[in-house]
Amino acid sequence: MSALLELDDIHFGYPGQAPVLAGASLALGPGERIALVGANGTGKSTLLRIALGLIRPARGTIRAFGQPCARETDFQQMRRRVGLVFQDPDDQLFCPTVAEDIAFGPLNLGLSRAEALRRVDAVLEQLALTALRNRVTHHLSGGEKRLVTLATVLVMRPEVLLLDEPTNALDPENEARLLAILQALPQAILLVSHDPAFRARLVQRELHLAEGRLGPHPHPR
């Protein structure tokens, strides 16, 4: 079984600060769901950004779908097939209306306006969000924003889904809704979450990030 996403020996540090990642490695296979666990500031979000080439590691290699990714053009190709849901929905939603924001990705994939809008409606229906279609993104509640950001990524039909703290600031009802949606998805998932119950119900395996390296979780359930 070849991995969809492989990070090998990733080193990274923000300028003027101690290194965050020092030899982190990870492989995500088809249909696999892995959680990244670690204290605040250990570099979990950084690792997700590195995986997509949004920031470059000082050392280490990234392979996606068997292809090494080194230059921006490699990452541009892989970002069409790997989706990242950001920690703060406000970073992700920047268009006036929900429909426009969800259509942004498909338009970037080169779809026509009509095709993009068809996909928008399909994903809204899949996530039972059709009522939000013409709402102004800025006025959505926290839970609605979270579900819409998931829609903005799923609409691109990625093969891998990276989720950065998706349950942040969600009420139990919206959290349950998000969990049900994610459980039904066929995509491989790399999840960063501080919520043990949420992780337990979504992923098969947990990796612990500490001192810049990934290892098995020291306190398995």
Partner: peptide, 10 residues
């Protein structure tokens, strides 16, 4: 961060 999120969506 928003520009990164835009790039992440191709």
């Amino acid at each position: 961060r928003t520009r990164q999120a835009m790039r992440a969506r191709a």
